[in-house]
Design a protein around this nucleic acid. Structure first.
Length: 425
RNA sequence: GGAGAGAUGGCCGAGCUGGCUGAAGGCGCUCGCCUGCUAAGCGAGUGUGGGGCGAAAGCUCCACCGAGGGUUCGAAUCCCUCUCUCUCCGCCA
């Protein structure tokens, strides 16, 4: 959420930002509501002021034993009017709030302007795509042939877009989770967190998934609960409504969670394999940062996520999202894309963003500077480190052998207890 | 699920026979003083949000004592609903 004062004073800047994102929002309605709100507020506050004064007067008159019934009758009217005005006020504020909550974050100045994903630019490419003497198979083919993935049976259990891992496949998934958590906690200073996988509406609103993107979420029927689409939601909301000490910052958390996404509106895309599932595993990195250093923290976060791919020796590239492709809450985002041989292209495996104070304003996460009074909003950041299912897919495809077996990346062998995945029975 | 208790400022904790209580007291924090170090001591200050006036420093008003309603001239204080926490019983991985 943007600050109401900021929007009021920077209407044209906000409009420009919306335009750059390829969005339209009716700023006129905002201005009208805003003016209306202040007009009502002014009137209601004047009346309240009067009521406060008279109430005190009544108190002292009663002490003297004077008759106050005439004033009381008068004040009854005033109170009624205040009540009416308040009703009007909250209606106006609701409208205003709805607009404000639907406004996306302002892109950082370093974000290139562009229309859509085709305008994203590649910042760097690390590692070379492997060369095969055969046509590399898709990971679902490999996985099903090896007996470690079974999408058919998964669909009996739950439906399309759910994974089912067996044997070495299940172990590989678990190995990746452990490996990723170990690297981030032991080498990069993140603290491990295991949060709830179901959250309430307030938390979803705090990080920006609601109110705009409810259709992307799995909701628990009959209760105001949602399955998390990413650990970002529960982990960022850990400090919801709190005031942190400056010397606690930056706070760095690494969390493994399953993620649940309804993937509404993506019917034709990635219908096979592990790329687009309703449920997938992810290790998420979340930071709470001092505003001055948040962009340094973003670079570090990106490096921390990248290090996993480097250690797994998977070829990848880093792209910076242009204004038109930026997520709703983000001010700046890098995507990491891993090489997928069967598709002959790079596919997103991580997304690292700085949200500045967009989420912290919604979730009310502040900090207090040493020696200064007042509080300030922290900056929040997060990034996948990494999406486990997609990493699984990338390993299968990049490490496939002529005979359809999968050699295991060196760093995972201690976790797997083997160096090769062969056909399961 | 049943029966109770509670939710107050950064934290702890009074107030809860309605009116001068934005809220005692303590802790913490900041600034100043003092003590040749440390500890202790003394003094002052120290919530958030939103309006109005002002170039600004600032002045002023309103709201906020879990959330939302109600009663009343007036509510942290009374009533209702909800959420959460705690204790006991039941059930349970």
């Amino acid at each position: 959420m943007l600050e109401i004062k900021f929007v009021r004073q920077n209407i044209s800047k906000v409009q420009r930002a919306l335009l750059m994102r390829g969005e339209t929002a009716d700023i006129e309605i905002f201005s009208n509501c805003d003016d209306e709100r202040r007009a009502i507020l002014l009137e209601s506050e004047e009346l309240r002021h009067r009521r406060n004064l008279v109430s005190q007067q009544i108190a002292s008159m009663k002490k003297e034993g004077d008759d106050t019934s005439a004033i009381e009758i008068d004040m009854r009217e005033v109170s009624k009017k205040i009540k009416d005005l308040n009703k009007l006020l909250s209606e106006t504020e609701e409208k205003l709030y709805a607009i404000l909550m639907a406004l996306p974050n302002i892109p950082n100045e370093s974000v290139p302007v562009g229309k859509d994903s085709s305008d994203n630019s590649v910042i760097k490419q690390i590692g070379k795509p492997p060369e095969f003497e055969f046509t590399p198979a898709a990971h679902w083919t490999l996985g099903e042939n090896l007996g470690i993935l079974d999408f058919d049976r998964a669909s009996k259990i739950a439906g399309a877009r759910f994974p089912l891992y067996f044997g070495a496949g299940a172990r590989l998934e678990r190995a990746l989770i452990n490996f990723m958590l170990d690297v981030q906690t032991k080498e990069h200073g993140y603290k491990e967190v295991l949060p709830p996988f179901i959250v309430n509406r307030k938390s979803m609103t705090g990080t920006g998934q609601l109110p705009k993107f409810e259709e992307d979420l799995f909701k628990i029927e009959g209760r105001d609960y949602f399955m998390i689409p990413t650990a970002e939601v529960p982990v960022t909301n850990i400090y919801q409504g709190e005031i942190l000490d400056e010397d606690m910052l930056p706070i760095k958390y690494a969390a493994y969670t399953p993620c649940f996404r309804s993937e509404a509106g993506s019917y034709g895309k990635d219908t096979r394999g592990l790329i687009r599932q309703h449920q997938f595993n992810k290790v998420e990195l979340v930071k709470f940062s001092n505003p001055e250093t948040s962009y340094d923290e973003l670079e570090k976060l990106l490096n921390d996520a990248e290090s996993i791919l480097q250690m797994l020796k998977l070829p990848y590239q880093v792209i910076i999202l242009c204004t038109g492709d930026l997520g709703f809450s983000a001010a700046k985002t890098y995507d990491i894309e891993v090489w997928m041989p069967s598709q002959d292209m790079y596919r997103e495996i991580s997304s690292c963003s700085n949200f500045e104070n967009f989420q912290s304003r919604r979730a009310d996460i502040r900090f207090r500077r040493k020696g200064e009074k007042g509080t300030e909003l922290v900056h929040t950041l997060n990034g996948s480190g990494l999406a486990v299912g997609r990493t699984f897919a990338a390993i299968l495809e990049n490490y496939q052998q002529t005979d359809g077996t999968i050699s295991i990346p060196e760093v995972l062998r201690p976790y797997m207890g083997c160096s090769l995945i062969t056909k399961e029975r």
